[in-house]
């Protein structure tokens, strides 16, 4: 546990979750839960982009392909 004991439990959970988001694709998309903290290249210029960038606005997210 090392320094894990000294930090608030929610911070520990946050770190754990972040690691999962970055390393595995087992992202759960559940109604009532936050959209995962996933950062992907923007199609426009390859810069990092996330749904978090739109916080404060309602978002309709369409997941699709050209084919």
């Amino acid at each position: 546990m090392r320094y894990g004991l000294s930090i608030a439990p929610w911070i520990a959970v946050t770190f754990l979750t972040m690691d999962c988001f970055n390393s595995l694709s087992a992202l759960e998309l559940q109604v009532g839960k936050p959209f995962p903290n996933l950062r992907l290249p923007s199609l426009k210029d390859g810069s990092p982009m996330s749904i978090q960038d739109f916080r404060g606005q309602k978002v309709v997210l369409h997941v699709f392909a050209s084919w």
Partner: peptide
Amino acid sequence: LGVSGIPITLAIDEMGII
């Protein structure tokens, strides 16, 4: 994102909740 099929359309509120 780990989706196994498309298209999918999600509504996400101002706080980031699906």
